[in-house]
Design a protein around this nucleic acid. Structure first.
Lengths: 109, 109
DNA sequence: TTTGTATGTCGTAAACATACGAATTATAGC
DNA sequence: GCTATAATTCGTATGTTTACGACATACAAA
């Protein structure tokens, strides 16, 4: 994050961070897989995506650091799942933005 | 956009691009200002944000290139406004994501 | 036509994101 | 203990974003 972004309203900063999480198709794909419980296992997730294991792992860590997913070691595998609590928070933030009342009557563009 | 992102489902790519638009607090702030019609004029928008005019202009162009806002010259000023049509499209895409049914019962994390 | 004001573009520096091979860690099973 | 396997971290190359001063453009009004 650039230094300047900290000068914005904290709510705006948080929403921008959530948006950044969703700003790569791999991360959206991961969230969708986990929501559908098609697979939990790191390797299986990597196999579903057109990226190397290393890159997928990087995206997984990004989602994990943000608290949006949780990971749990199970033998040789690692199971990931959505943090439903956090997902609800993200959803609520976006819904706040999208429920803005739009006053576009006086606009001539 | 990296070459690899084109290998994902086009719907996912589009949503990721919309998310990228919202991934900077300045751009969210601009959208909120325009939605509230607090101001339309480029210079006034710049004055509301803790960034230089040049940088704000860059963010405005980014939103404009994506079709999310429209700009119209009016004498010395430029009036911007939200493209309500496009905003509805963005909203619908996100709502699609957030209306995912979550199957987290079998997950132990 | 000159001057001032509002915008936008250019060039560029610094920070950040994406991607992956190679090395590392950690567990399972022999 | 060894070996195989799964996952992650490291190092690094490449591309993108953010930020802004300086310059360019375009209109208005003196």
């Amino acid at each position: 994050m650039h230094a300047k972004t900290t000068e914005f309203d904290p709510e705006l900063q948080e929403l921008a961070l959530f948006a950044k999480l969703l700003s790569h198709p791999a991360r959206i794909a991961i969230i969708k897989l986990l929501a559908a419980q098609k697979t939990c296992i790191s390797g299986d997730i990597a196999n579903e995506l057109p990226l190397s294991r290393a890159t997928v792992c990087q995206h997984l860590q990004e989602l994990k650091n943000a608290g949006l997913i949780k990971g749990e070691i199970s033998g040789l595998n690692v199971n990931y799942c959505l943090n439903v609590e956090k997902w609800r928070t993200v959803k609520a933030q976006f819904e706040g933005l999208f429920s803005l009342t739009i006053h576009d009557i006086s606009c001539n563009c």
